[in-house]
Amino acid sequence: MAGKGRGVGAFTFNIEALGIGRGSMPDSRVGPMPLFPNIDFKPVPLKAGEEEDYMLALKQEMRGTMQRLPHNIKCHANKAEVERYTERYLKQSQLDDANWTPDWSLLPKELMPQKKKVVKPVKKKKAVKISRKETEAMLTKLDELEKKDDGNPEKSDDETEKKKVNEGEEEEEIEAEEYDEEDVEEENDYIDSYFDNGEDFGGAGSDENVDGEGTF
């Protein structure tokens, strides 16, 4: 307000000609507008009636149903460590999730879930299992051998080395598998499935799990 007198005088023309009198200049304001300014007029109440009530019910029902449908994709990333009571129901909805099969003829081919993705982990487990079994067998064998030739220290040394080699192989396998996963994620032109570690030569068992993967 203090600067008003000077401000009016600073114009090069007679501002009375614009119809702006001395007292009619609006107050100057400093700073941003308040987030929730006071409103001069109260809002009108909402329409209420049978139609509105029915639409309200429809809206709420629709929302509820849509959230239960498999189309509502839930983020499973942040799983609680402790299994809660409600999770049993979540599992139910996940089951529903699996039941939705879209009509693939109306969708682009590339959106189909890739089959090998599901095959992979199964294969991995098998590979690991087999190698574990082998190591176990080897261990027992070694134990037996140890018992037999207690007096021969050189041999046992050899065998422990063998053991180490086995373990090393296992680690390598795991690494290779992790690498595989990355390949799948990045989707390049290479044929991921071509990677051949030589273990399931002949491809036995890889075709067993093809069925039932077209859904999610």
């Binding site: 929302r63 849509m66 959230q67 189309h71 509502n72 994709i73 839930k74 983020c75």
Partner: peptide
């Protein structure tokens, strides 16, 4: 988000 979830 309300109808199809966070991912969508």
């Amino acid at each position: 988000q309300e109808h199809f979830g966070e991912m969508v």
